[in-house]
Computed example of a mutant assay.
Amino acid sequence: MPALFVSFMRTAVPFIAGWLLTLAVRAGVEIDSATVTGFVTVTLGVAYYLAFRLLEWLGERSRGTALQTFAGVLLGWARPPSYPKVPVLEPVARGAYLDPGDGVR
């Protein structure tokens, strides 16, 4: 369950940042269309996420935990979420079935 919160934070923070950046842009430029405003918000949110996720990835690759932590904090959480490993089940052979009387056929 903690991974769900982490992934939510890392999704929500870039969109909030995009919204705040949109407000900053609107302070200097008048945008009348709600569609354009929505597009600008999403575009800025995606660009924000991509920029800081790329910095985080570069920090992981260069073993620079300071860069990774800095970028992660600006994404809403200092570390990427980790998900538990799910065991992979083997496929059942075609034509095999379980008979309570004498086992697998």
Rank of each mutant, 00 (worst) to 15 (best):
P2S: 12
V6L: 03
S7I: 15
F8H: 10
T11W: 15
T11C: 05
T11E: 07
A12S: 09
A12V: 11
V13K: 05
P14L: 01
F15I: 03
F15A: 02
W19I: 07
L21N: 09
A24S: 09
A24P: 01
R26Y: 04
A27C: 00
E30A: 12
D32M: 10
A34Y: 08
T35P: 00
G38F: 07
G45T: 12
G45D: 02
A47P: 00
A47V: 02
A47F: 03
Y48N: 03
L50D: 06
R53M: 06
R53S: 13
L55D: 01
E56S: 09
W57E: 08
L58Y: 08
G59E: 08
E60C: 07
R61Y: 02
R61K: 10
G64E: 08
A66H: 12
Q68N: 13
L74M: 13
L74T: 14
L75E: 02
G76R: 13
G76Y: 14
A78G: 08
A78E: 12
P80T: 15
P81Q: 06
P84C: 07
V86W: 04
V86I: 15
P87G: 09
L89K: 13
E90G: 03
P91K: 04
V92D: 01
V92L: 14
R94K: 11
R94C: 03
G95E: 01
A96Y: 12
A96E: 07
P100F: 13
P100K: 04
G101F: 07
